[in-house]
Write a protein that binds this DNA or RNA. Structure first.
Lengths: 254, 254
DNA sequence: CATTCATGTTACGGCTGACGTAATTTGCTT
DNA sequence: AAGCAAATTACGTCAGCCGTAACATGAATG
């Protein structure tokens, strides 16, 4: 199909990963639907599922569909202790979340999207819901901290020609986004008022490595109605401190 | 090699899963070591790793080794929301852990071992450390609840001929283990005094399904020195109630 | 109760993609 | 610079994976 990009990829493994991702997205999905979504034949998917099941990567549901299995649970836990960023950040996120009593997230840039790889939600009833694995555009909301410290040419590549408008406040003009990114870089943090979701505000700071490259970003997300200017000021101070703490932990810790 | 058991397993997928497991066990492992541990050639492992890396299932470390990647993190989180038992049990475990201020675990039987699939630790300094993915024998400690409600012939199969002695209190006589299992079945819970680790006590209750089959078990693990008889009595009541709550949630909640 | 349809599963021959050996490169240690 | 081990590439051979097509299963319909 495509002329480049595929050197030495084991196809049945690659397919099986796609199958897993499909099951992760839709719990209790059936063989036929997986085959359709991936544009593959049923026997091929069946062989893949059989193998994955044989290793407890998937299991069958009562209704005859498939869901992720225990081995994935185990792997996932191992991953969160192996990925330094998550390992180091988790207690800091938890403490930050308790201090502000709002939801906090750790995000990294994954290609042209922001990917949440850890989160903490406070135990109050009304709170911002966050999901590990969720992807968001880089050009809107506080995800901009992941973009603002990159070389400007790369920024330009990562901003789509015609950005999606998610709310009335979503920035869709490329030139204005670039200006805003410069502002974020100079300030060292980013505040978003309803750029991704109407009723939310989000305050983010970058986790920086040597040489000013960005490793990830942490942000506090809160309902706008209960967030005053004084809260925002406090959030900026706290989120910046937490981000610096993680940065230092990454350089210091072996 | 072995004459049975392998019908229609995709070998490169099966191998790649072994590679993942190997990396989960040893963070920052190198190509050569993986190949040795699995008894495979390096090119084969390399192709597998390349494919896994291509999909962010693994990533390279600074030192040139491999660790689990972001996609595994995402999958793992999805798994914990898809596996009904974990999803349902998590809040109950958390509440139980807060009530007793000790570590609690959710375990299932995986072949002839107990496998921890969820846990909660209290925030006090001295506490029992638990690890999702850790395996323990079924015949010792409070894991016996996973064994006690099985048919006796199956119990016999699952107890090794010569059980490992982990502490002086580990039961190693098959006949005595079988008697103890009967006691556990009649009591409906299990208390272990230092059978797996010298200084620990553990109280467990089974999560039962219709017909009395065991789905899993939850247990409270605590340092022996601060656990009085009155505490044990309280733990039995609480762990049994929590287990019943989960059982009912599984039958009721569609 | 027979019919139909969709889904899941098995069978099988062809072909390509995965295989191991061996050569080469990389990169670190001496 | 030389030496060594680990990582990677090259390549011809073969079997593992492939899709088609037939079969089985079971739920929905008349």
């Amino acid at each position: 199909m495509n002329p480049e990009e595929d050197l030495q990829i084991l196809q049945s493994v690659d397919l099986s990963i796609s199958v897993l991702m499909e099951i992760a997205k839709h719990a209790d999905i059936r063989l036929t639907e997986i085959a359709q979504n991936l544009g593959e034949t049923k026997p091929r998917i069946l062989r893949s599922l059989r193998t994955l099941k044989h290793r407890s990567f998937v299991q069958r549901t009562e209704s005859g569909g498939y869901r992720l299995g225990n081995a994935i649970l185990v792997l996932g836990t191992a991953a969160s202790t192996q990925i330094d960023l998550v390992k180091l950040a988790s207690p800091i996120l938890e403490s930050l979340s308790q201090k502000v009593n709002e939801t906090v997230q750790l995000r990294i840039r994954d290609h042209a999207e922001a990917l949440c790889i850890a989160k903490f939600e406070p135990s109050r009833d009304l709170r911002v819901h966050a999901v590990v694995g969720r992807r968001r555009p880089l050009y809107a909301g506080s995800s901009k901290v992941l973009l603002a410290f990159l070389p400007e040419e790369l920024q330009a590549e990562l901003i789509p020609g015609r950005p999606d408008r998610m709310t009335p406040r979503t920035p869709v003009d490329r030139a204005r986004i670039l200006v805003e990114l410069r502002r974020v870089r100079e300030a060292g943090y980013c505040i978003s008022h309803g750029e991704v979701s109407e009723q939310l505000v989000s305050v983010a700071a970058p986790i920086l490595a040597f040489g000013g490259s960005v490793i990830g970003g942490i942000n506090i997300a809160a309902p706008a109605f209960r967030t005053q200017q004084a809260d925002l000021d406090r959030y900026v101070a706290l989120v910046t401190a937490a981000a610096r703490e993680i940065s230092e932990g990454l350089s210091g810790g072996r």
